[in-house]
Write a protein that binds this DNA or RNA. Structure first.
Length: 476
RNA sequence: CGGGGCGUAGCGCAGUCCGGUUAGCGCACCUGCCUUGGGAGCAGGGGGUCGGAGGUUCAAAUCCUCUCGCCCCGACCA
């Protein structure tokens, strides 16, 4: 086999790049830090979009679109927000050949322009809640970029909601995090840990931030989605008030939440192997490839006729690739589709025609089965369902096997600097202890899990009192 | 911005030290034949401002000067 993919244990980061390029998911663009998402990669994004969009609508949200350019003065209205985002913004200073009166920021996120509009739209409690989502591109000037994981421009969805009370905003924030968790697990087959971010790691301008954290195959953590309770920070900055039932003016309570094309990076790093991409069936627009095999013209016709029947049957439910290209041999085709992560391969040759059978190969396990031609649609459906379930289970086991409870700093450092993983350790809540860990080891607090058990303990660093464990890990 | 490296065909490279026919190789691509149960073979073919500018020379991918760009490693981040 010609080596198109660097094995993971040789160089994980080269492996990742090879998967993306060889799987034709994306390519480098002429613009530094930006990438082109190719059809294979965009197909994954479309599935992320369509499924999440449905889940958002089921929870009462609607879509809208706000402009790419944001007046500089808007960006500067919320103090923490300015501080957090200014360094990574691209700014338009010239338009129509003239220097602009006011610079325009390319959105790094849309809170400011959206809240400027919400001021116009919200007057009464009857206007609330306002539950808007947008699918958009954003730009954050990055020094070091990686395909899908960190590019200057990326695609995402950002939800921005407005509520009457803190409690309602809080409920929304948590509700969305649940949606993200459900999507990650049921569709991406990636188990995640939902929890609250520490003060140091929260979104610039939020009261607090929740996240779902996933473990990649190299034991590093990847933040797969965030949901922020913005409190009244933006309402105050943009003076968005509503009249409540008693006729009193109150500032609106806000949330925002998002996931990005980064999820594609997560999908790759959670499941793929040294042969290439591995897609969970629900993330494959084309879940099946059929490869007909023959020897000589007489066999060719016989095989193609037989295959055509199978194809027609499967097409009722699935988007099937029928690879009858004559210039490539089967082995070549097998590798090519494996590289692109097609979940199921069906091989049809003279022997199968004779036996009224087919050969079915699962991409995740590479397990080869001889299956009966009759009932093929059902067989395929079952195989894809099983695959989807088993991929999640496998990832969950992996995550559990690489999560450790640690009570002393030496062991902590040993693990972090060694094979890595999630470390559940006690923390007193002091940001200084958190910073020390980060400076010593580069590991950070990923989040404080919702399912944290009450457990008396001592902070890993200062020995101060702690009543539960938080998740530490090196992160992408 | 600091440290390291690289620009020669779509991709990966050789040639540069020591200047000299028409700039070469592998992969990919095109045509034909032949093949097809794990990345076949043969024959033919297309494709180059040697990153750019200037200079030295009878002669520059090769030597000199300047310049542009990119990649990797460190300080920010979904």
């Amino acid at each position: 086999m010609a080596e198109k993919v660097t094995p993971r244990d040789v160089d994980y980061s080269r492996w990742y790049t090879d998967i993306v390029l060889q799987g034709k998911l994306a390519d480098y663009s002429p613009v530094k830090g930006a990438m082109v998402i190719r059809p294979n990669g965009y197909a994954i994004w479309e599935l992320i979009q369509s499924n999440l969009d449905r889940l958002f609508k089921e929870t009462g949200h609607v879509n809208a679109y706000f402009p790419l350019l944001i007046p500089e003065s808007f960006m500067q209205k919320e103090a923490e927000h300015v501080e957090g985002f200014s360094p990574e913004c691209a700014v338009v200073t010239v338009g129509g050949g003239k220097k602009l009166e006011e610079n325009l920021y390319i959105r790094p996120t849309s809170e400011t322009i959206i809240w400027a509009m919400y001021k116009k739209w919200i007057n009464s409690y009857r206007d609330l809640p306002l539950l808007i989502n947008q699918w958009a591109n954003v730009m954050r000037w990055e020094m070091r970029t990686r395909l899908f994981l960190r590019t200057s421009e990326f695609l995402w969805q950002e939800g921005h909601t407005a509520h009457e009370t803190y409690e309602e905003a809080e409920e929304e924030t948590r509700k969305i995090l649940n949606v993200y968790q459900k999507f990650a697990e049921e569709y991406l087959a990636i188990p995640v840990i939902p929890g609250r971010k520490s003060e140091a790691e929260k979104f610039a301008g939020a009261k607090h931030t929740y996240s779902i954290e996933a473990m990649m195959q190299d034991m590093k953590a990847l933040q797969a989605g965030t949901s922020h309770n913005l409190g009244q920070n933006f309402a105050k900055a943009f003076d968005v008030q509503f009249q409540d039932k008693e006729g009193k003016l109150q500032y609106v309570w806000a949330t925002s939440w998002g996931v990005s094309t980064r999820l594609i990076g997560a999908l790759i790093m959670a499941h793929s192997d040294d042969r290439g991409l591995v897609l969970p069936p629900k993330m494959a627009q084309r879940p099946i490839v059929m490869v007909p095999i023959w020897r000589g013209e007489d066999q060719k016709q016989e095989v193609l006729d037989y295959a055509d029947g199978v194809l027609k049957e499967l097409k009722a439910k699935y988007n099937v690739i029928f690879d009858d290209r004559d210039q490539y041999k089967p082995g070549y085709k097998f590798s090519e589709w494996e590289l692109q992560g097609i979940p199921l391969r069906l091989e049809i040759g003279p022997k199968d025609v004779a036996k009224n059978a087919l050969v079915m190969v699962r991409r995740d396990t590479m397990e080869k089965q001889f299956v009966n031609r009759d009932g093929i649609l059902q067989t395929v459906e079952t195989a894809l369902d099983t695959m989807q379930k088993e991929m999640l289970e496998r990832a969950r086991n992996f995550q559990q096997e690489n999560t450790f409870d640690v009570d002393d700093y030496d062991t902590f450092k040993e693990i972090v600097n060694g094979k890595g993983g999630f470390i559940r350790a006690h923390w007193c809540g002091n940001p200084e202890c958190e910073t020390k860990v980060k400076n010593d080891t580069k590991a950070t607090i990923r989040n404080i899990p919702f399912d944290q058990k009450k457990e008396a303990g001592k902070c890993l660093i200062c020995g101060g009192a702690s009543d539960g464990r938080v998740i530490f890990a090196k992160a992408y």
